[in-house]
Amino acid sequence: MTKVRSVDVGGAAPYRIRIGPGLLDDSAQLAAHARGRHALLVSDDHVAPLYAERVAAALQAAQPELQVATLVMAAGEAHKTLASLGEVIDALATLGATRDATVYALGGGVIGDMAGFAAACWMRGVDCVQLPTTLLSMVDSSVGGKTAVDIPQGKNLVGAFHPPRAVIADTATLRTLPARELRAGLAEVIKYGALGDPEFFAWLEQQREPLLASDDAALAEAIARSCEHKAAIVERDPLEKGERALLNLGHTFGHAIEAEQGYSGAGRDALVHGEAVAVGMVLAARLSAMLGMAPHTDTEHLRSLLLAYGLPVDLPAGLAPQALLERMRLDKKNLAGRLRLVLWRGIGKAEVVPDVDEARVLEVLAG
Rank of each mutant, 00 (worst) to 15 (best):
V143F: 05
G185F: 13
R340H: 12
A28M: 06
V234I: 11
C121F: 00
V42D: 07
L212F: 12
L335R: 15
I89G: 02
D170T: 06
H301T: 12
M281E: 04
A83H: 12
P14C: 13
A148H: 00
T2E: 15
V364F: 10
A83C: 06
N334K: 04
E228T: 12
T297Y: 01
D269Q: 15
R99V: 05
R225F: 12
G367C: 06
S304E: 00
A101N: 05
D8M: 11
I151N: 03
L157M: 13
P312C: 10
Y51V: 02
L85D: 00
P164G: 01
Y309H: 11
D150S: 13
S141G: 09
I223L: 14
T297A: 13
H229E: 09
G280C: 05
G144K: 01
V272R: 15
S137Q: 14
G367S: 13
S264A: 15
S226A: 15
G10Q: 06
G112V: 02
A187S: 15
S141H: 07
H38P: 01
M1A: 14
A202F: 04
V68R: 02
A359Q: 14
L302M: 07
L71Y: 07
L131N: 02
A119C: 04
A160H: 00
L362V: 13
A179E: 14
A148N: 01
C128A: 11
A75E: 10
Y192E: 09
A57G: 11
E258H: 09
R124L: 01
Q261M: 15
G242R: 04
I168C: 07
I190V: 15
D26H: 11
S226E: 14
H229T: 13
A58I: 03
R16V: 04
R208E: 13
R340G: 02
A105I: 00
T134W: 14
P316D: 09
L291K: 12
A232P: 03
V352F: 09
A231T: 12
A232H: 07
S43Y: 04
E53G: 03
H251Q: 10
H301W: 04
L365P: 08
D216L: 12
M281S: 06
L283Q: 07
C121L: 02
T176Q: 13
E199G: 04
R340P: 02
H301L: 08
Q67P: 00
D215I: 12
A48I: 06
A119D: 00
L324M: 08
E205M: 05
A222Y: 13
L343E: 03
A270Q: 14
E358W: 05
Q60A: 13
D127M: 05
H255P: 03
P152K: 11
L271T: 10
Y309R: 06
P152I: 08
E181V: 08
G262W: 15
E228H: 14
K349M: 06
A294R: 03
P152F: 08
P312A: 10
V313Y: 01
